[in-house]
Nucleic acid binder design. Structure first.
Lengths: 196, 196
DNA sequence: ACCTGAACACCGTTCAAGT
DNA sequence: ACCTGAACACCGTTCAAGT
C-alpha cells in the first residue's frame, strides 16, 4: 500500500491524539467525553471512530505517544561505559519528568485506567520492561563493582530497576495528590526515613 | 431528633456503602454503575439517592469508611514514650496495608478520582494531615535525639511524615500496576538505590 | 421520612448513506 | 477509503407519586 496514505493516517491519528491530550489535561480522564474531543479537534464523531476503534484505544495511543517516558538516553550512557548508579538513574528520571512537563496528575489517572483496561496495563508493563532493560545495561558497571559474579550483577541491576520505578511512582503519586514538591526534598526525605 | 432514626440512617448508609465496595472491588471504580449497586444491595435507585446525594458522595463515604487507614495506633505508641523511627512507622503502615487486606488497586483508583473530585481530594489531604500529626508525635523522641532545638525536631518530624507517605504511595502504586511484591523487598531495594 | 421507578439529559458506539 | 451524523443502548440523576 502507498506510503503516503500510511503517513497521512498516522498524522491524523496524532492530530486526534493531541486534541484528546489537551482535553485530558483540562478536564481529566473521567470527564473528557468523545464530544469534547470532537469539539477540540474540529472533526466529527465518525472521523474519530474511523481512526480509533473506541475511546480506550485512543487513550492507549495517547499514553504510548505522549505519556510514557522516553528511555533511549539512559541506555546510551550505560553502553558508553559511563558508570551510572541507580540513584543517578532515578534522579535522571525525575528531572526528565519535570523538564518534559508531563502532568503527574494525568499519569496517575492513566495508572488507574490500567487497573480496568488490561491492554493498557500490558503496554505499561512492556514499556517499563524496556526501561528496566535499559536501566539494567546502564547500571551494570555499578553492579559489577558491587558483586562477585556476572550473574549476581545482572540480578542486582534488574532488582534495582524495579526499585527505581517504585520510587519514581511514589514521587509522582505524592506530587499529584498533595501538591508539587522538589524532587531533591523527596530524595533527601527518603534518605533520612530509610536510614532511621 | 430521635437517636434511633439517626442510628438507622447511618446503618443504611453503611449497608449501601458495603454493597458499593463489593462492586468496586469486583469491577473497579470506572465500571461500577448505580445499577450495579442497586442489584448488589437489593435496594432501589431512589433508596440509594435518599441516602447519598450522588455517586461522588457515596464514593467519598466508601473511601472515608473503608479505605483510609486507621491512624490511632501510631499516636499511642509515640505518646507512651516508645522511640519510633520514621522507618518503623513506614513499616507499620505497610504491614497494616497487607494485614487489613485493603486493595492497592482500589486505593490507586481513588487517588485518580481525587484528581477530578476536589472534595474527595480535600478529605484525603485532611486524613493524611491527621496521619502526619500522629506520626509527628510518634516520631518526636527520635527527632529530638537528632536535633539541637525543639523547633528543629518538630520540623524534622513533620518532613519525615511526608516522606513516609510518599514512600508508602510508591509501594502501593508499584504493587497495583506491576503486581504484588513483599514490602521488605521494596524497602531493601530502596535502600540500595538511594545509597548508591 | 423513606422509598419507588418512569422520565430526562447525556454518554459511547454503530452503521446506512454520502464523497 | 474516509467521513457524516441520526439512531441506539446505557448511564447518572430527578421528581411526582406512593407508604
Amino acid at each position: 500500500m502507498p506510503k503516503v496514505s500510511e503517513k497521512y493516517r498516522e498524522a491524523r491519528r496524532a492530530e486526534i491524539a493531541r486534541a484528546a491530550l489537551r482535553c485530558l489535561e483540562r478536564k481529566g480522564v473521567r470527564d473528557t467525553s468523545i464530544a469534547d474531543i470532537v469539539e477540540e479537534s474540529g472533526l466529527s464523531i465518525g472521523a474519530i471512530y474511523s481512526h480509533f476503534s473506541n475511546k480506550a484505544e485512543l487513550a492507549r495511543y495517547v499514553a504510548g505517544r505522549f505519556l510514557f517516558p522516553r528511555v533511549d538516553a539512559l541506555e546510551e550512557q550505560g553502553s558508553l561505559g559511563v558508570v551510572i548508579t541507580p540513584r543517578h538513574a532515578l534522579e535522571g528520571m525525575l528531572t526528565a519528568l519535570t523538564t518534559t512537563g508531563i502532568n503527574p496528575s494525568l499519569i496517575l489517572q492513566f495508572w488507574a485506567e490500567a487497573m480496568v483496561d488490561a491492554e493498557l496495563r500490558q503496554s505499561m508493563v512492556r514499556t517499563v520492561d524496556q526501561l528496566r532493560t535499559s536501566l539494567g545495561i546502564a547500571v551494570m558497571p555499578w553492579a559489577r563493582a558491587r558483586t562477585a559474579s556476572e550473574d549476581q550483577a545482572a540480578r542486582l541491576a534488574c532488582e534495582s530497576a524495579r526499585s527505581i520505578s517504585a520510587l519514581a511512582q511514589g514521587y509522582i503519586a505524592n506530587t499529584a495528590v498533595f501538591g508539587p514538591h522538589p524532587y531533591s526534598d523527596y530524595l533527601a526525605g527518603a534518605d533520612t526515613v530509610l536510614a532511621s
